[in-house]
Write a protein that binds this DNA or RNA. Structure first.
Lengths: 344, 344
DNA sequence: TTGAAAGCGCTAACAA
DNA sequence: TTGTTAGCGCTTTCAA
């Protein structure tokens, strides 16, 4: 029985059709200079008539880059990370790379497994929002990696890895100062997950602003809307005047919002609120929510661009020079929930 | 100069250390049965002491699957698609596959390029929320693909490809019927992008419900909140009683919500509203929004599982039998915006 | 400027 | 049950 010719054309098919050697086709493919115009033409024609495209596996087996970068984030469906991922994908697309996104669900073990998977697939680089900052094992692993890594939203300088994040401290400080400028004497800070770097930074910013005016910081962890209710009840009890809440992220804001509804408290006349992290309906709520907006797209884009730069350096053997985090400024978006009147 | 031994161990390193032939290592790696217990042990030990893992490129060059599946969606940061993607990623992870997500931005050209990219990387399968249903070129392309494809949210039966989606028509019908059951005589349907299959189906469901009670359907395209305002003003003008709005997706609902706020109209006493697609703060709004909830995770999971099934069949040469869409039921979540009282 | 030929790391057919 | 060996499709010396 005769063997059918493979339906998928290969380099040697192109060579045969063009009447040249394999090496010449390869040279044309890779833009090497030392090929005559005539053969270049013959080869390119053969390529297009066969609609040939090179087999990436064979190339990569020979040492070429895989053309894929990885990204590990706590959650794919979280708006913050999905927007970052979209920005990263967009940059990657421009560089001819594909993006593989994996979710760690904030579990260091899953994160580690994801990392292994990505390495097995020989990604050329990695963007990592690491689940656990103090994970010594991971840090060691990362430092020994044969692949450039950029941190996103969470720092990795302990592993000597550069990262991109928002100015969490400054943003929180500005937000708190804004609330204080309204004259509120009682500004509390509701937050979740204080173990996260970003949250800790925001708490620090809040605390700095509060202490600067000689007040005492009121830090409250809220795990759900009931917590928020209790917290609100506690603080509003004695207050004749408006109290203010700085929510350290939009989950905390959500709990607070639910609590306010349950307690029938008016925003901002009884409780003013301002939260870190913009969210989808912030400007559609009544009243619209004032927020600290993170430059989400820029975070993703910068991380991606930094990564591709590192990958270039890495390929040429240029060592990492600088692992200081890149910090992007936030924007304070004043709407109405903080007590400001709508200004059009 | 002596050549440094490659720092990355290969199969032959394992073989040498274990004192066996390459083929034996390969057999152990692939779980072939005909290897003696003793050698299995020696090989596995050698593997772990070298912490060896096989080179995927070499394997794939030999014809093995790439261990990657692709997913093309209009937007990565859209909550609906990102949640689908998360579900797909989770299934893929369980099957030892990686997921590559690309955004088409609803542009058929980008979608086509993305598809080409994914094919060059030799994905084993594809989940596709196609930007253009009538794209003949794409359909032809898809039918000739050497890779199994599953549609998601948007049908591809014209390309003879199975897909997974919500019961858009039935969900919209039930929602409209619910609004009608409140006694509203004027139930309009605000929508965006009627060219989308899902929207068209929802409009059909709405229309069926309206006609069944002898009313005239009132279909209104709203591109922004000003449109929604105008539309609302027009319909509420003569109405002494409450009017109701069925928003065909959450974007339309958002425009409507903004319009209602601008016009100082009360929900649900003056305008009742119910929308297709749950969204993040639907239950935190005042009043909480009644919605038609899509089984987002199930959509993603089912699409992924269907894809892996197809991939298995495909590998064994079993032809596609059935390209009927799989339709998952929606849930009507009654909150307060439709006029129902809160029931705890 | 060109082509022949030697691998990249793996799998599988074939021999032993 | 084993090991030897010939490729998978490409890139890259090396020699012409």
């Amino acid at each position: 029985m005769k063997k059918m010719p493979s339906p998928i054309p290969k380099l040697s098919d192109v060579a045969r059709l063009a009447g040249v050697g394999n090496a010449t086709v390869s040279r044309v493919l890779n833009g090497r200079m030392n090929v005559s115009q005539e053969k270049i033409l013959r080869v390119t024609q053969a390529i297009s008539t066969l609609s040939y495209s090179p087999n990436r596996f064979a190339r990569s087996l020979k040492g070429a880059a895989s053309g894929m970068i990885g990204m590990i984030v706590p959650s794919i469906s979280d708006l913050f990370f999905s927007r970052c991922a979209e920005a990263v994908e967009s940059v990657a697309r421009g560089k001819g790379s594909l993006l593989i996104v994996m979710a760690s669900h904030d579990d260091p073990l899953i994160e580690f497994e994801n990392l292994q998977q990505l390495l097995l697939h020989r990604i050329d680089g990695l963007i990592l929002s690491s689940a656990l900052m103090r994970n010594v094992k991971l840090h060691k692993e990362l430092r020994e990696l044969r692949v450039p890594v950029i941190g996103l939203d969470r720092p990795l300088h302990k592993a000597n890895i550069p990262s991109v994040m928002s100015e969490n401290l400054e943003g929180a400080k500005a937000a708190t100062e804004h609330l204080l400028s309204h004259g509120y004497r009682k500004v509390l800070c509701m937050h979740v997950k204080p173990e996260l770097y970003t949250i800790r930074e925001r708490l620090r910013g809040y605390t700095q602003a509060i202490k600067k005016v000689g007040l005492e910081p009121l830090l409250e962890i809220v795990q759900n809307s009931e917590d928020a209710e209790a917290c609100l009840a506690k603080h509003i009890g004695s207050a004749k005047s408006t109290i203010a809440v700085f929510a350290a992220n939009n989950l905390a804001a959500r709990y607070c919002l639910e609590a306010l509804r349950t307690l029938h408290l008016k925003i901002p006349s009884q409780v003013a609120i301002l939260c870190f992290d913009d969210f989808d309906l912030a400007d559609t709520l009544s009243p619209p929510m004032s927020v600290v907006q993170q430059p989400v797209d820029d975070l993703g884009r910068n991380a991606a661009e930094l990564l591709f730069l590192r990958m270039q350096h890495f390929a040429r053997g240029i060592p990492e020079t600088n692992s200081d985090p890149m910090r992007l400024p936030t924007r304070l978006i004043i709407r109405e929930s903080c007590g400001c009147r709508p200004c059009l």
